[in-house]
Simulated scan of single mutants.
Amino acid sequence: MRPQLFICCLISSDALAQSLKHSLQRGSFEGALSGQYSLTQFAVETEFLSFIEREKQLDCLILQDTAKLLATLGHLRERAIFLPTVILDSVTPSSVQDSPILAEADLSDLAALYHTAVLRTSVDQLHQIDQTIDRAIDQFLTLSLSCPLPEQDSTPGSLAALTTHTSLVAQQKRLSDKLKERLGYLGVYYKRNPQNFLRHLSSSERKELIQQLKEDYREIVLNYFAREDNLNERIDNFVNVAFFADISVSTIVEMHMELMDEFSKQLQLEGRSDDILLDYRLTLIDAIAHLCEMYRRSIPRES
């Protein structure tokens, strides 16, 4: 059997919880990620958080939009627990506590507090909840240093920021591996969103993405021969961003050559030989090999 997608919910409304359960059972047969869901539901936040800390194989969260929503997301962030998340608007609110607090707002508050791959849906869209879960997972897997998690209480390079990033990368890898096992290479890799392609971004967005990729690649080069523990994660993250933005191999080669030229000029100013830079061809080969493999896997297999 293909692995199930494990969904954990925090929903205080019994009626809403039952409606969601019914929709997911139906979506198990109709959803784009065909197969059954495994659903665990909670009405109390403390029980929900305790379960999530113990359970390491969750794939998506569904949270009811209540007055406690932002606090719940804050608690998840404090624990460095990052998962694809769907916010579900309440049914007819029966109390102030159960009324939606973000009904008139966009997702900026949620993105600033938790991450930018949080999606919202309404009760009348429950029949499409499986598709919403697909999109939440899809967006979560594209989270990267080019669209970083918020760093409200930490500065770049701090232990808190490193913990946050490491937790995100680990969860992305686990979920990506699970989807590949579930769907083969025709799953999330083949469902890239063309709107995120470099050529479709605005001029300022293209400039920002390329600059971030250059900075990421510089860090990889500087640490490549140190073989630090998270080097492979750095390379995977760099390649993931390049793949989902449909960056060409030639663009990566150009980044490498520009960086080597910069290093060469610095070494010449210091009166040192730049022969050592030839060794960094290995870095380029490593990055290109990863990227080419992802593009290869994105090609539909012949039936």
Rank of each mutant, 00 (worst) to 15 (best):
R2V: 08
R2E: 15
I7F: 01
C9D: 05
S12L: 12
S13D: 15
A15D: 10
S19G: 02
R26G: 03
F29A: 10
A32C: 02
L33S: 09
S34F: 06
G35D: 13
Q36I: 01
Q36W: 06
Y37I: 03
Q41Y: 14
E45C: 08
F48L: 04
I52M: 11
E53M: 00
E53L: 00
D59Q: 13
D59L: 11
D59R: 04
L61E: 00
I62V: 11
L70S: 09
L73H: 15
E78H: 15
L83M: 12
L88D: 05
V91G: 04
Q97A: 03
D98H: 09
I101T: 09
E104H: 14
S108L: 10
L110Y: 11
H115S: 07
V118I: 03
L126T: 07
D130K: 09
T132N: 03
Q139L: 11
Q139Y: 04
L141W: 03
L143D: 02
L143W: 00
C147V: 13
L149R: 00
E151F: 10
Q152D: 14
T155Y: 13
P156H: 03
P156I: 12
G157K: 10
S158E: 13
A160T: 04
H165R: 14
T166I: 13
V169F: 12
A170C: 06
Q172V: 01
R174D: 03
L186I: 12
Y190S: 12
Y190N: 11
K191V: 08
N193T: 15
P194Q: 12
L198D: 07
L198E: 00
R199E: 01
R199V: 00
S202T: 02
S203D: 12
S203A: 07
E205R: 14
R206L: 06
Q212F: 14
Q212I: 15
L213N: 00
K214N: 06
D216Y: 12
Y217A: 06
E219M: 12
E219P: 10
I220A: 04
L222N: 09
Y224T: 14
F225N: 11
R227S: 07
R227N: 07
R227L: 05
E233S: 02
N237G: 08
F238G: 01
F238Q: 07
F238I: 03
V239M: 01
N240E: 01
N240H: 06
F243P: 07
F244Q: 01
T251H: 08
M257S: 08
M257K: 15
E258C: 11
D261P: 13
E262D: 14
F263M: 10
Q266S: 07
Q266I: 05
L269M: 14
E270R: 08
E270L: 07
G271C: 06
G271W: 06
R272A: 09
S273E: 01
L278E: 11
D279N: 04
L282K: 01
L284F: 00
L284S: 02
L284K: 09
D286A: 06
H290C: 05
L291I: 04
C292A: 14
E293C: 14
Y295M: 07
S298L: 05
E302W: 11
